[in-house]
């Protein structure tokens, strides 16, 4: 029998994978991929809690998170294309234009 804890543990594992990706990768595109993983992990947690407590709010919240993720990708990809045209690379190390 699968309980709420199973889903929450899975969600936590996926969140850990995503945040390891955010901290370890140095490529901007990979950072955005890891952010998608984080959002998806949280979505599973929301829907699972909503199901086991008989609440629709979890699904609604997941729905809005998907909308936010879609708009985030649209803006982020525009910025990435712009940055790639200017510097020719997507490495985080090139993002050092503010020399104090």
């Amino acid at each position: 029998m699968i309980t709420l804890n199973h889903y929450l543990i899975l969600s936590a594992i996926l969140f850990v994978i995503g945040s390891v990706g955010v901290m370890r990768r140095k490529n901007l595109l990979m950072l955005f991929f890891s952010t998608e993983i984080l959002l998806n992990a949280v979505n599973i947690g929301f829907v699972a809690i909503g199901k086991f407590y008989g609440d629709m709010t979890g699904q609604m919240f997941a729905f809005f998170i998907i909308a936010v993720a879609a708009s985030e990708v649209a803006v982020a990809l525009g910025l990435l294309i712009l940055w790639y045209k200017r510097t020719g690379s997507l490495s985080l190390d090139t993002l050092k234009s503010m020399n104090g």
């Binding site: 899975l10 979505n43 909503g50 199901k51």
Partner: peptide
């Protein structure tokens, strides 16, 4: 991941996950 939504009786969200994430985000 959409499979988990189907397992959790959230069919609408499962379909939205496939359409929006793999259809729109990954295509972008």
């Amino acid at each position: 991941i959409s499979a988990f939504f189907f397992l959790l009786d959230a069919e609408f969200l499962g379909v939205v996950q496939i359409v929006v994430y793999t259809g729109a985000v990954m295509a972008l």
